[in-house]
Amino acid sequence: MGPNLDLDVVGMGASRKGNSGPYLRGMLALSGIEKAYPLAGGSLPVLKGIDLNIEQGEMVAIMGSSGSGKSTLLNVLGLLDGFDSGGYDLDGVNMAGLSEKQAARYRSQFLGFVFQSFNLISFKTALENVALPLFYQKVPRRERQRRAMEMLGKMGMDDRADHLPSELSGGQKQRVAIARALITSPRVILADEPTGALDSTTSHEVMEVLREVNATGITVIIVTHEADIAAQCDRTIRLHDGVIIEDGKSGEVVEPTAHGARSQD
């Protein structure tokens, strides 16, 4: 049974107060983002000046070799991690120096996360996992459950509503996780290797779901290693050693033959 998404994004912009006017820069706008991890006896620079614009409704793949900084970039975009310098505007609002409480509000209302390891809460059923983000939006319990059930239905998972994560297959877990990411009608879905733990058939099903999510107008950003996953996105960004070396339409981005492909400016 394929997912049948009917996500309401029309009028979503209108429901966001203040910042919904037209802006020149993308909905996610990074400029000169730098980030280093502190290490014993120094620090390890991981993002070395990232400039990036992503518009509402785009479906973007972030590729690059292991350790190139893909996850770090996604976490910065998702306000799960901070950055050292540069600018990050989300929906026209500067995210630098955001308070913890404000960041929580953005995560709650703007962003949805899908992880490689699913990150479902083990003692909660599929339904309760999906309903949880609404708890933090103070939606009443009955309403939460109704909406969670509906969302599980759209993922073709309503018959697994009462199952614990341990009773689900990998693909089923990821569907539940996607349902949970979508329940708050976010504007951006951030997925770090969402198919990394799945076999290729299941991977394609999950990608199918994400494409349908994107079709409703939600921005989807996927970190992936796999070229055929990236190929299902509209745009591919390639990272190398903390800088963007390629950025273009998926399929047009060529595999770098050597490190010489790195762009210097």
Binding site: L80, E100, K101, A104, R107, S108, Q109, I121, P133, Y136
Partner: peptide, 14 residues
């Protein structure tokens, strides 16, 4: 990890 998940889902520290 659960705390991290809850935060990603929009929970405030409070």
């Amino acid at each position: 990890v659960e705390i991290g998940v809850r935060k990603a889902l929009g929970a405030t520290s409070g």
